[in-house]
Simulated assay, not measured.
Amino acid sequence: MEEHGGTDNMGSLDIVAITSFNQLLNDPIFSYCKDIYLVRKSDKRSWKNLPREKYPKKLVFHDGRLALKPTPLETLAILMWAPVGVILAILRIIIAISLPYGVSSPLLAFTGLQLMVTKPQSQSLVQNSSQLPNGKHKGILYVCNHRTLLDPLYLCFALGKNLHAVTYSLSKMSEILAPIKTVRLTRNRHQDHEMMERLLSQGDVVVCPKGLHVVSLTYSVDSHVSMFHGTTATGLKCLDPVFFLLNPSPIYTVQLLEKVSSKVSTCLDGSMSRFDVANYVQRELAKALGFECTMLTRKDKYLTLAGNEGKASTRKEN
């Protein structure tokens, strides 16, 4: 089944179905199709796998550990690498949580972990925090897209300093192993607002965009792996960093962007709601990464992959 067009305001969604002659056409799904093509079994001889670059739509949701097609040769390579990868992942974790950034960064690079950092031209945007009317300094809120649970940690490596990471539904094991302070969101707007203000009075904070109310600095993250993906919606979340570190030479890219202006981030003039600000930040992140924004939400992702809305109350934590 193929999709043509889009679901935005600029066009409609056209669905084309391909089915066999012995397939019943009274299936409700065919009522959504613009065109239906019937093919004979003999026609399958001329069928070929469609190259990925010619797919009508790019893959949006993915939930699997393997980052490669498990052909016999590649499966053999995974089995041969797995014992070495486990030892290497444990070594990388020990180095990351036990040594300062100045020492751990070159050691981790020696083990194959690659970190690429791009900073804006104005270095003051990264270093300076905002000043409150009472003379006290408030930390910077770093806003990023989400690739793996290691996103805040890699920002710390890029900046060379510790940050407070605001998390949601993080496993206990991940919290224990985290070398930086992690604080959970309660999903109560008033409580989370007070908690964020308290953390920002203590230093810089990193969070994914969920509505902004302070001067913030956006940064984009991207990861490249060869064997295992370091994120999942249905598996054990505490193993996500482990699978990422199992790769022979994974790459993390951290790109620091320009600071969101005070007028935009605080919504003081009333021209932008908190949703508008979050969407603005997400568009800037997508532009930096070369990604395409969709109308799909986090709720859509978890309903598709895990059968729930991605809330901590609807599933047991790992």
Rank of each mutant, 00 (worst) to 15 (best):
T234Y: 01
V16D: 08
K57E: 06
G64M: 00
K311P: 03
L25I: 06
V39I: 13
S31F: 03
L303K: 13
L132W: 09
P100M: 12
Y219S: 09
C156M: 12
G270H: 09
L177R: 01
I251Y: 07
K259H: 08
M295L: 14
S46M: 04
T314Q: 07
L217E: 06
P70M: 01
S105M: 06
P241I: 00
Q191M: 13
Q23G: 00
C144N: 15
G64W: 00
T218P: 08
G64S: 02
K301W: 05
H62N: 00
G235W: 02
I95P: 03
M10P: 01
H164S: 14
Y101G: 11
F243W: 12
L285R: 05
H190Q: 09
V166M: 14
A278W: 12
E258M: 10
V206S: 15
A82Q: 02
L99C: 09
E317S: 05
A306G: 07
G5C: 08
T167V: 12
M116L: 10
I93A: 08
V166S: 06
L25A: 10
V143Q: 07
P133D: 12
G64L: 00
V86P: 02
I87Q: 04
D300C: 14
W47P: 01
I15M: 08
A286D: 15
G211H: 11
G211T: 08
I95D: 09
R40H: 07
L108I: 05
S42F: 01
R187Y: 08
D192F: 13
S226N: 06
V205S: 14
